[in-house]
Design a protein around this nucleic acid. Structure first.
Length: 453
RNA sequence: GUGGUUGUAGCUCAGUUGGUUAGAGCGCCUGGUUGUGGUUCAGGAGGUCGUGGGUUCGAGACCCAUCUUCCACCCCA
């Protein structure tokens, strides 16, 4: 019995015309990463569960794809836990491995494990798929690629600046017409909570104010109330909702607001450094915006936080990133500050498709198709193809001497711009007939002239 | 995970208050005399109407379940 084949929800097959566009994105990102001195690594797609669990917050843990144990070890299943409804313990009893949820945590593990082989500050890039047991939606997949660049072993703020430059360079190269790099600092968020006397409620506060642009000021205040934040604190925060003007303005307001908080002021100082540097160096297409409401879900961030959105497109953030002071400490290596960014290639793809930003010539992977007229001609064409390929010109030979109509159609469907016709007549005379598939024009030239280009 | 929504040919969709052999456009295949694609003309193939139950003399249309699609929330790349 054959069933209709299908793939898992949230996963995708990529056809060639999609792949050439995806590769174009990956190559662009990789080129820029290399330009800034980042080195490539890879890590396994499957990790020990203990490596991943507890690094992404409660919601994150829930979305990690667990991989079941094999064979005999399944007998260790904790059926009692299952009966008690303790799904977590039951899962752990039948699974001790999981698919990676992002590239940052495995990277932290990698750094600790290989610390003696690395020289610091270590700058790595990594382009690999990650998996999330999320419900798929527009721009959200269960399997998708992340393109990460991180630096560990330095708390220098020049990396924050360089990472902003990388965002700018990559997305400008890809032709995005209008995008914003939003930046904030966890220390500012801590400072806000501190000034309000709600330090212990940092997470609920940030989650609530993160939604400002979605649910508006009223909605945020309500949410803060629901989360048990005191009225005095809410009143205190209030002016921040009205924060407007340019980045400098916002920083000045914040400076007053956070005057009592050393942590908060430190955050401002860090941001000022980044803004000053970027003002000096300039950006190509990106707008760099201070966004106090930017929080981001990942718990491990401690300093700068980044998020990039494409303007005028209905799509979540296309890139993210931030500084994490102590991620490697979780694996036993202290004092290793890190900062990194991630490009969501799949979402960038979706945005570029929507805005029609892919160059047309991407699909033209083959320049010449040799029409096949028979055994003798085929061999002769293979010789010419050899010479073209030696010059790095891509070409192919139709594999059978089928009806010319079929061969031409193949060239047409494949978007091959030139067809080479060499029948017995051309062979005898030492010439080739070349048809330009766009115009339909045909010219005949000598073999030498054809190979010269 | 919560609420709603969708499912008919490879694709986009029609299909009248349940009633014979389920349609269109595009795509695909074949041909318009054996060296010409894209355009044009003439033919053709292709659907157990998501799946499994149920109501009915009769279901693509109605009911239930399940899967799937899309949207919002949650969260996120």
């Amino acid at each position: 019995m054959s069933t209709k084949p299908s793939i898992l929800k949230g996963t995708r097959d990529f056809l060639p015309d999609t792949m050439v566009k995806r590769n174009y994105i990956f190559n662009t990102i990789q080129t820029v990463f290399q330009k800034f001195g980042f080195l490539p690594i890879e890590t396994p797609c499957i990790e020990k569960t203990e490596t991943l669990l507890g690094k992404y917050g409660e919601e994150g843990d829930r979305l990690i794809f667990r991989v079941m144990n094999q064979g005999e070890s399944l007998k260790k299943a904790d059926l009692k836990a299952l009966e008690d409804g303790n799904i977590g313990r039951f899962s752990n009893s039948i699974s001790d491995k999981a698919l990676r949820y992002d590239l940052t945590v495995p990277f932290a593990r990698f750094v600790v494990q290989n610390q003696n082989e690395l020289s610091f500050p270590f700058k790595r890039y990594q382009i690999q798929p990650v998996w999330r047991g999320d419900r798929p939606a527009r721009g959200r997949y269960r399997e998708f690629y992340q393109c990460d660049a991180d630096v560990v072993g330095s708390d220098s703020l020049i990396f924050e600046v360089e990472l902003v430059q990388i965002f700018d360079e990559v997305l400008t190269r890809l032709g995005l017409p209008d995008f914003s790099i939003k930046i904030n600092n966890r220390k500012i968020l801590s400072g806000i909570a501190e000034v309000c006397g709600e330090s212990e409620n940092l997470i609920p506060i940030t989650v609530a104010i993160d939604k400002l642009d979605k649910i508006g000021k009223g909605g945020v205040i309500e949410e803060l109330k629901n989360r048990g934040i005191s009225n005095e604190a809410i009143q205190k925060i209030d002016p921040l909702f009205e924060l407007s003007g340019d980045n400098e303005n916002k920083l000045n307001v914040l400076k007053d607001f956070l005057a009592e908080s050393d942590t908060g002021l430190k955050g401002i100082e860090e941001l000022e450094f980044v803004f000053d540097a970027i003002n000096n160096l300039g950006l190509q297409k990106a707008k760099l915006e201070l966004e106090v409401t930017l929080a981001r879900g990942l718990n491990y961030y401690t300093g700068a936080i980044f998020e990039v959105v494409a303007n005028n497109v209905n799509m979540g953030s296309i890139c993210g990133g931030g500084r994490y002071d102590d991620l490697t400490a979780l694996f036993g290596l202290k004092g290793m500050s890190g900062v990194g960014i991630s490009f969501g290639a799949d979402r960038i793809y979706d945005v570029m498709s929507e805005l029609d930003l892919f160059p047309n010539e991407l699909l033209r992977t083959t320049s010449y198709l040799f029409i096949n007229f028979g055994e003798k001609e085929q061999m002769y064409c293979m010789g010419l193809a050899n010479k073209l390929r030696a010059e790095n010109i891509s070409c192919e030979i139709y594999p059978e001497s089928k009806a010319m109509k079929k061969q031409m159609k193949y060239a047409n469907d494949r978007g091959i711009p030139n067809v080479v016709l060499i029948g017995s007549k051309e062979m005898e005379e030492g010439v080739v007939t070349i048809k330009d598939m766009t115009s339909g024009n045909q010219v005949t030239k000598s073999v030498e002239e054809f190979l010269k280009h």
